[in-house]
Amino acid sequence: MITINVAMAVVLAVLYSVGFYLLLQRSLMRILIGIVVLGHGANLLLQLAGGPPARAPVLGTALPEEFADPLPQALALTAIVITFALTTYLLALGYRSWVLTGRDEVQDDVEDRRVAERERPEGSMEEDAEGPDDEEDPGSAAASDRTDEPAEVSGSGAAR
């Protein structure tokens, strides 16, 4: 079993708490930064899981017992790659949201609100139709017929 020193434990605690705090914000940008910070925390934890820092890399320049454990390093590399990909994806999503709605906030579940506010289960549709539309940005209806998201931009480029 690997133990951890206090300094690293404090760094991890800070990274995780900052990450989760940012994750609870409304703005997608802050959430994105939160996820990046959390990812760093998780990767640091993976590194520490391999043993104490400042050991030799597996390059054949040190004795086998002085090697750092290479497996957590490989795992952290893979995790970094995955976090990289998903961060760019979230950025694209945030941009798309900004184009469509003019903001990058993570919003509440509209239908859930509607169900909760409904007094009778058989509520008439005339009342219901008002609900979601109030939240709609006037410009979004015009924007929503443009269906090419960033990934689709590549699609339109490929069709040339």
């Binding site: 959430i31 998903l86 979230l90 999503l93 949201s97 709605t101 993570v106 509209v110 269906t147």
Partner: peptide, 16 residues
């Protein structure tokens, strides 16, 4: 894919 405002909204929740 084929995003509109509502799909972006629900997609965000899912992704996060």
């Amino acid at each position: 894919r084929r995003t509109n405002a509502s799909r972006i909204r629900s997609g965000m929740t899912y992704v996060i």
